[in-house]
C-alpha cells in the first residue's frame, strides 16, 4: 500500500472471529494532506468489517472535524488498505472461519 501519510493500525489483537474491530488512525506526515488536520492525536474507533465501508468512516471523521473534506479520499484509502490487509490475513490464518 502506498504511503498516504495517514497511518491506520489495529488497536487490538485480531483473532479472526469478530466482525467489528478496533482501529487506530493518525497522521504521520501532515504534508501529504491537502487540508490541515485538527490535531495530530491518534483517533481510535470501531469498524465493522462486514457492514461498513472505509468511506463511511472517513466521511464521519470529516463531519466530526478531524480532517478537511478535501482529504476524504486519502483517509478512506488509508483505512481501506488496512482493512484489506486484515481480511487477507484472516483468509490465510483462519480460512475455514471466514
Amino acid at each position: 500500500a502506498e504511503d498516504t501519510g495517514v497511518r491506520v493500525e489495529l488497536a487490538e489483537e485480531d483473532h479472526g472471529r469478530k466482525s467489528s474491530i478496533a482501529l487506530r488512525l493518525w497522521v504521520e506526515d501532515p504534508k501529504k494532506l491537502k487540508g490541515k488536520p485538527k490535531d495530530n492525536g491518534a483517533i481510535e474507533f470501531t469498524f465493522d468489517l462486514e457492514k461498513e465501508t472505509p468511506d463511511d468512516v472517513a466521511q464521519e471523521m470529516i463531519d466530526s472535524g478531524f480532517f478537511h473534506e478535501n482529504d476524504l479520499k486519502i483517509v478512506a484509502k488509508s483505512i481501506r488498505d488496512r482493512v484489506a490487509l486484515i481480511l487477507w490475513r484472516r483468509e490465510r490464518i483462519w480460512p475455514r472461519m471466514q
Binding site: 492525536g41 491518534a42 474507533f45 470501531t46 471523521m61 463531519d63
Partner: peptide
C-alpha cells in the same frame, strides 16, 4: 486524562489520544 471522545451523529465514537512521539515522522 489526555483522552477526548467525539461521538458522531451516526453513533460512532472516536477516542482521541496523543500519538507516541516515536510514531510521528519528522515533521
Amino acid at each position: 486524562s489526555s483522552f477526548t471522545q467525539v461521538v458522531h451523529s451516526a453513533g460512532r465514537r472516536f477516542i482521541v489520544s496523543p500519538v507516541p512521539e516515536s510514531r510521528l515522522k519528522d515533521q
